[in-house]
Every structure is written in structure tokens, then in C-alpha cells.
């Protein structure tokens, strides 16, 4: 299994692709845009985008769906029943998904948005805008901020093992690094 990343200048967001070594059905996470560079990654690895995972439905993470649909027939998974003009399989907190042998666990981490999900597969954790390298997501009010911090602390930081963190924006990190270096998560 290979992991690829792509940076979208529109929205400054990260898109990730998980696909088999030899090509085949692949998963795309948060297609903020679909441009030639991203398409080249997909096609040069002989991938077919079969499933789309959205950490949340904000445009910088989902706008690429429209162009993607013109090329691939995929199923959208998110915390909603509908995203843009697309029907979505609604994923709930704690749900485990299986994509042709790739197991993905979803954890609901509300606060940045009501539909925010963190996806875990293998050693990788795709955190969307819940948190990233040294930061947490923006929130509409102080209640949502507390909700977000509490969700991360109780559902993510309590996980025993270390994970590689791949956020929706900015550089990657590790769960160990975030436990120690993320000031918002160190707050009492």
C-alpha cells in the first residue's frame, strides 16, 4: 500500500491518496481540488478512485469532487448524508470501514465543524481540520473550542500507540509530538 500527498494551492489544503503498490482501487482523502498534478499521481500509479473519504465537508476539502466525478465512479464517505451535489454514506463516530482490505476507523471530533471526522488506517491518522502540527482547528465560538479540545483529548490523545499525523492543512506530525508540542492540547 502506498501513501501519496498533494498540496492544493486553492485553500492551501492537503489531499492524500491511499492505493495498492501495483495499482487498482484507491482511496482519496479530502480532494480539495483536482488538478493535473493530482491526476498525474492517480493515473501514473494506475489507480482508480473508488472511494472518497471526507474529514469534513468544507470546500477546501471537497471541491474536487465535481471534477473527480467526471472521471471516476466513486462512493463518498463523510459525516453527512449529502456533500455538495453528491450523496454520501454517512459515517458515524467509532465506525469501522473496509475498502478492499484497507481498514479505516472513523472517530468523530466535533468542534471545527459538526461533521468532523478523523480517519485512522494502519499507523496513519488523517486529522482534517481537527488538529495539525502545533495547532487545532478554528471554531465558531468558545463552546465549540472546548468541545474540540475535549474530543481530541478524550478520543485521540488517549490512544496508546503513536500515530503519524496527516492534517488537512500544513505539515505532518506525530501523535507523540502533538501531545508534547501542541499548546492547545497541553492546556489543563
Amino acid at each position: 500500500m502506498k501513501l501519496h500527498f498533494h498540496f492544493s494551492v486553492a485553500g492551501f489544503s492537503n489531499t492524500y491518496i491511499l492505493g495498492p503498490d501495483e495499482g487498482g482501487d484507491a482511496i482519496i482523502i479530502d480532494p480539495g481540488t483536482l488538478n493535473v498534478a493530482l491526476l498525474n499521481i492517480i493515473e501514473s500509479n494506475n489507480y482508480y478512485i473508488k472511494n472518497v473519504l471526507l474529514t469534513h465537508a468544507h470546500e477546501s476539502h471537497s471541491s474536487g469532487l465535481k471534477t473527480l466525478r467526471k472521471i471516476y465512479d466513486f462512493t463518498v464517505y463523510s459525516g453527512n448524508k449529502q456533500v455538495l451535489d453528491f450523496k454520501s454514506a454517512e459515517v458515524v463516530d467509532g465506525e469501522s470501514l473496509d475498502f478492499s482490505g484497507i481498514g479505516v476507523r472513523a472517530i468523530g471530533v466535533q468542534g471545527h465543524s459538526l461533521d468532523s471526522l478523523v480517519y485512522i488506517t494502519g499507523s496513519c491518522m488523517f486529522t482534517g481540520d481537527a488538529f495539525g502540527a502545533g495547532v487545532i482547528g478554528t471554531t465558531p465560538n468558545s463552546y465549540a473550542r472546548e468541545l474540540l479540545i475535549t474530543s481530541i483529548k478524550t478520543k485521540i490523545l488517549t490512544l496508546e500507540r503513536n500515530y503519524l499525523i496527516f492534517p488537512g492543512h500544513g505539515s505532518p506530525s506525530t501523535l507523540e509530538a502533538e501531545r508534547i508540542t501542541n499548546p492547545a492540547l497541553a492546556e489543563k
Binding site: 500527498f5 505532518p172 506530525s173 506525530t174 508534547i180
Partner: peptide, 26 residues
């Protein structure tokens, strides 16, 4: 997309590099 968070860097030369989207926090 590389991570140096929490690292100690003594007398290191990163000059003339593309060091993009990297995490040097703390």
C-alpha cells in the same frame, strides 16, 4: 512533508534547500 518536531539541531547546515511543508515545532 517531513517532521523535525522536538528535535535538537546543533551546527546543522540546511542552506540552499527546498524545505517545504516541514514541521520544526519546538
Amino acid at each position: 512533508y517531513s517532521v523535525f518536531a522536538g528535535a535538537t539541531l546543533n551546527g546543522c547546515d540546511f542552506s540552499s534547500s527546498d524545505t517545504v511543508h516541514c514541521n520544526f515545532n519546538r
